[in-house]
């Protein structure tokens, strides 16, 4: 595999004698969308702030395209476009003036590039209006525009879909995927919307109490177990429970008002169905409920402190 675009090496943060981040080590590769998942107060934002140099590290180092953010801030930060928490822009300036402001700080951003980015995030019609008249969704787009302005190779988005309507969320999601796949950006996305992460990310890192407790690809995350829950809708629940237990030797996960739910493998579904029908139980429906990221997340974090 190629070199990672961002590398965190044993990054620690101690604030007032309290360790907030306990030695994070991971890398993110070009073309990859990395989901940073964790309950509030787990250290997501602190980590992001350390990556972009807003906060100092107590120990360890972070490299962006090989440049240390500690020692070589300007060279490192050049490669990053970011939104940290909310996309807070100057409300008394227009959207365009805001972009002009950041383009002057980056250097080498042409007017054409500004127009291009405005077009890209779909703000062309309102760009010359003051930001205070913008909706949260529009501010989010403007935030994305300022992050992309200097064509960075690393994009960091803190809660990028916050405040967007469903159509906007889908658009941003497609956009993020496109940036990663077509332009090979390394993208870090943080969110507590698990369903969002599942659709957007390639890999997910779960952070809890300042520790990275698991990093997996989304597919592994959801499908690492062959077992799945299958719900059988039946008329006689008691009988179905008895039959399933005595004749199929399956563990019943739970009984529902209209049927039973079993934990089994794919090949076993027809066997169970056949057995039930043989015992004159009316079978109305079979539904497999794949384990979602949310179930997995709850399992890993122990279901506590989840927002």
């Amino acid at each position: 595999m190629e070199k990672p675009a961002i590398t965190l090496e044993n990054v620690k943060k101690v604030i007032g004698g309290k360790t907030i981040i306990h030695g994070l080590t991971f890398g993110i590769y070009p073309g990859e969308v990395f989901g940073f998942l964790g309950p509030n107060g787990a250290g997501k934002t602190t980590t992001i702030r350390m990556i972009v140099g807003l906060m100092s590290m107590t120990e360890g180092n972070i490299y962006i395209q090989g440049h240390s953010i500690k020692k070589d801030f300007k060279k490192a930060i050049k490669n990053i476009g970011a939104i940290v928490e909310n996309p807070e822009m100057y409300k008394f300036l227009t959207g365009y003036q805001n972009l002009l402001h950041y383009s002057r700080m980056a250097g080498g951003v042409s007017r054409e590039r500004i127009s291009e980015v405005i077009e890209l995030v779909g703000l062309k019609d309102r760009i010359h209006e003051k930001v205070k008249t913008y909706s949260l969704g529009m501010r989010q787009r403007l935030g994305l525009a300022q992050a992309l302005l200097h064509s960075p190779s690393v994009l960091i988005l803190d809660e990028p879909t916050n405040g967007l309507d469903p159509a906007g969320i889908r658009e941003i999601r497609h956009y993020i995927r496109r940036l990663a796949e077509k332009e090979s950006l390394a993208i870090i996305v943080s969110s507590h919307l698990l369903s969002e992460m599942e659709l957007m990310c390639d890999r997910i890192g779960i952070i809890q109490k300042g520790q990275l407790i698991d990093v997996q690809t989304v597919n592994d995350f959801v499908q690492d177990e062959k077992q799945m829950s299958v719900a059988f809708t039946v008329d006689d629940i008691d009988k179905a429970v008895r039959v399933a237990a005595e004749q199929c030797h399956f563990k019943i996960v739970k009984t529902k008002s209209d049927g039973i739910e079993l934990q089994l493998e794919k090949e076993q579904i027809p066997i169970v169905a056949e057995t039930l029908m043989k015992n004159k139980i009316k079978l109305y429906g079979i539904e497999s409920t794949a384990k979602t990221l949310e179930d997995k997340f709850l399992e890993i974090t122990g279901g506590k402190e989840i927002v």
């Binding site: 972009v52 140099g53 807003l54 801030f73 300007k74 060279k75 930060i77 050049k78 990053i80 970011a82 939104i83 940290v84 928490e85 909310n86 996309p87 807070e88 822009m89 100057y90 409300k91 950041y102 700080m105 980056a106 250097g107 300022q146």
Partner: peptide
């Protein structure tokens, strides 16, 4: 206003 965050993540 929080704009300091976007201001200080520039190559300056």
């Amino acid at each position: 206003s929080g704009t300091i965050k976007l201001l200080l993540i520039r190559p300056v």
